[in-house]
Amino acid sequence: MLITSLAYSQDPLGEYLGDESAFYAETKQVNQFFRRFNNEESKDGVRYNPGDKKYRDLRERKNYLDILFDAQNSSITRDLKQQFIADVNNETNPTFLDFRNGDWFSEVAAKFDYRGQEQIIYLYLRLEQDRKGYKWVLHHVHSDKYSSMMPEKESEEKKFIHPMSHELDFMNLNKAFQDTDHLQDYAVKGYKPDYLTMLLYDIKRGDLKFKTVTDVKFHFFQVDNWYFEIAEFNRSGMNRGWLISSLAKVPETQKENFRKYLFRE
């Protein structure tokens, strides 16, 4: 068992500084989103251990699920939300989120400086097992700059190295490599530029410098035929913290395409 718990402590740290109900209501960590989604803690944040009577109790869980949505998002209709809750809280086959082995990943918008120019690059990270535990790893990158450097084109428009070039010791490579706008045309069919490698290379060369993280969200594909996203809402009121910010019915057969859409491919 790799996961352990720092249980919630009842012993208060500070003093009473006014109404704290919004802080209690707030889903304060992504970890708490998991616990609330699965009904693995009480309203006060006291962790239930497996074997506790209320651990993953479906009746109590329904109330939790109901408050885990961004209430200001009109695209998440009441009907859609209720269908989702009914599916994940199905008595015969409920779905619980899995932190380490589930299908979910993070999207981080980060500001970089590229030779004096600011640009936002999207970093996609997922959890990976390594030796004694787990770690977040970069598995995908999107940058408008990289994608505009390597635009995808219809095959008939592509430049090519003619089929008898070998007889001339490929001397036309000289022209191909000077044609910087079409370099990717000369690559194998199905070639996909690897933006992660480009990012690492630019950083190693010193051309690209990390400045700050501007936004973080998480994409979940753990519920059959559903996709949802969570984001952090830093605002007044009770509906705040890490909440479901996007929800869609996505058949399992279409999830791969949906992932590509999220990767901005």
């Binding site: 790799l2 352990t4 720092l6 970890n31 932190f99 535990g133």
Partner: peptide, 25 residues
């Protein structure tokens, strides 16, 4: 000053064997 509330995450093991958690105050 500090509010009463605190939230303590699960502890997760990282590759080097140490455990890591997050406390929110």
């Amino acid at each position: 000053s500090w509010f009463n509330i605190q939230y303590i995450s699960d502890l997760e093991r990282q590759p080097d064997g140490r455990y890591v958690g997050v406390i929110t105050i």
